[in-house]
Design a protein around this nucleic acid. Structure first.
Length: 332
DNA sequence: AACCCGGGGCT
DNA sequence: AGCCCAGGGTT
């Protein structure tokens, strides 16, 4: 019976591919990281972990994840909670919009689906705060769907393993290329362990800076290994020209002023201030500026107003009238 | 594709 | 003082 051969995106023979999979899964069984959300089989705790893990390190998420689930034990309970409480529990995680979107997601799923998350990629992808990565991660880790998952760790592993130019193992690859490689490697029926294994390999062995190729179970198949074994000097890592100890250095060494003039910094300050308020308290707009910016002047009013409107639109805060004056508060 | 969005830890 | 991190949304 004739079969259509799907062209392999890489150089491995079927036998090599089989051995590669077996080696990594064995490595994972012995070296995989133990994280609390990996012990759960409930979609909701896994959802919370995936949202928290967006651009936030594992170690920092762990305690926050526990506290969040203690406060909001189920998706329906999260949906019922005041927005304010959700933002308060998000303290220390950053990217506060994630908290808002998770709350919106919970409210939608609670109202429209009786608190049951969908399990297809398309439906998951349509939820607020769920992009391509999180949709596939949820499908795989929460529902056992055979789908590739490509985060930054896995992309790095794939990039190096199948580098087109062995002398440039960290040359960027396209999303499409990453998805193609990940799909071709995926062992049907073991997607969960496989994707977690690739992640852990990227985090613990195939590290961004100094990959430990000597400890890598995939080194035998890896295109990048030679390049890392004989490290050539990177473009940006040349030792800086020696500074003569009296030569024209800096004019004055500033006390490392974190020039966080960015909107980002002040948005964080605003949310932090609102978190510190009692549940029904609010801050007069007339005071807000100088409470988040030491050198706030009238010239900053337009800027602040614009940021506040944006944040109100995003659901991070509310601007209300109180005694005829504008006050800023947590969303109700 | 580029930009915005926090915060902490690492080198 | 940059770089990095289980990305998503907007333009």
């Amino acid at each position: 019976m004739p079969r259509v051969e799907i062209p392999s995106p890489f150089h491995l023979s079927p036998g090599q591919l089989r051995r590669l999979r077996r080696r990594l899964l064995a490595w994972f069984a012995a070296n995989g990281r133990d994280m609390p959300w990996r012990r759960s089989r409930r979609p909701y705790p896994i959802l919370v972990s995936e949202i928290m893990l967006q651009q936030t390190q594992v170690e920092r998420v762990e305690p926050k994840w526990r506290a969040f689930l203690k406060a909001f034990p189920s998706l329906n309970r999260l949906a019922q909670a005041p927005r304010r409480d959700v933002i308060v529990l998000w303290d220390g995680l950053g990217y506060n919009l994630r908290a808002v979107r998770l709350h919106l997601l919970a409210q939608r799923i609670s109202r429209e689906r009786h608190g049951r998350l969908p399990r297809t990629l398309e439906e998951l992808r349509a939820l607020p705060g769920v992009g391509p990565y999180t949709a596939s991660a949820l499908a795989c880790f929460a529902f056992g769907v055979d789908t590739p998952v490509v985060d930054t760790n896995i992309e790095r592993v794939l990039r190096r393993l199948f580098a087109a130019d062995p002398s440039d193992p960290d040359a960027p690859i396209t999303k499409r290329r990453g998805a193609t490689l990940a799909a071709a490697l995926l062992p049907a029926g073991r997607s969960r362990d496989w994707n977690l294994a690739l992640m852990d390999l990227g985090a613990q062995v195939c590290a961004p800076r100094q990959p430990r190729c000597g400890a890598c179970p995939l080194a035998a198949w890896c295109t990048a290994r030679a390049a890392f074994a004989a490290p050539r000097r990177q473009a940006g890592s040349q030792p800086r020209s020696p500074s003569t100890p009296g030569g024209p250095r800096r004019l004055s060494r500033r006390p490392a002023v974190r020039f966080e003039n960015s909107n980002r910094y002040y948005r964080g300050r605003i949310v932090k201030l609102l978190r510190s308020l009692a549940p029904h308290e609010s801050v007069p707009l007339s005071q807000l500026g100088r409470r988040i910016k030491a050198d706030f002047t009238v010239a900053d009013r337009a800027w602040l107003g614009k940021e506040l409107r944006k944040m109100a639109r995003e659901g991070l805060l509310e601007v209300r009238r109180k005694n005829g004056r504008s006050h800023v508060a947590m969303p109700s």
